[in-house]
Amino acid sequence: MKEATGLLAREKGRAFVLAGGTDLLVRLRTGFIEPDLIVDIKRITATRSIDVRSNGFRIGAAVTGAELNEHAKLTKAWPGVVEAANLIGSKQVQGRCTMTGNLCNASPAADSVPALMAAAAKVVIVGPKGKRTIPVEQVPVAPGKTSLKKGEIIESILLPKRPPRSGDAYLRFIPRTEMDIAVVGAAVSVTLDAKGMCTDARVALGAVAPTVVLVPEAAKALIGTKMDKAALDALAAACSAACRPIDDKRGTSEFRIKVAGVLARRAAQIARKRAGGK
């Protein structure tokens, strides 16, 4: 890892990190980027494993979508995160793509990022000046731009330990049933008390603003409620209100605003069910 960050820091030209390569190679092939250096981090041991720790999970940067899906404990604790990562591309892409790569592309439509934000995930960054850990929401700063500095690599993603009666879910809207980029994405993570009252919630939306956004107002709409119709309506309204979308080839602004609320509501219902809510 040290060698990799050193290589990246020393390279004077255009340097890129290769994990799964499912986006990098497309950009390479279409002449969109012309790198002077590509660093493949897949053979660095620290990037290859999923570790279960007392305070949660540590997911190496080069762990693929397919590997996440095959990890029973992770899938049980964070089904929404895993299902979001599994929505990135086809089976072919799943064998290669990584959540870290998805995050570092800094696309507002990245599928795994809303789920990671809703999960309060953090990333461990290694660079020439050592290690630092920051929340996921601080990584993307603009479309295609991250807060990472020259020579820095995300080594792993940290997911917190789940309190009892917690559940998360991610839903996205695409015109087909597979193979599309999200037109809207919504992730919801909730924790309930024994009476089914929501005690904690985080809500994040994708493809409705220049970056994936955390929506605290939407979370507030759920906390302290039994996530009944009124709370869900308030959640949907808060999500729609938080959207700052554009019209593009994938959908209209109007459509995104409306569907963000619909998906957040549906995701919240799934998350609640997963948390054991009735």
Binding site: G21, L25, V26, Q92, V93, G95, R96
Partner: peptide
């Protein structure tokens, strides 16, 4: 397939 996992060979470098 690479090590038994399905992938698109257009998304993999020959060097990998």
């Amino acid at each position: 397939t690479i090590d038994g996992r399905l992938t698109c060979s257009c998304l993999v470098l020959g060097a990998e």
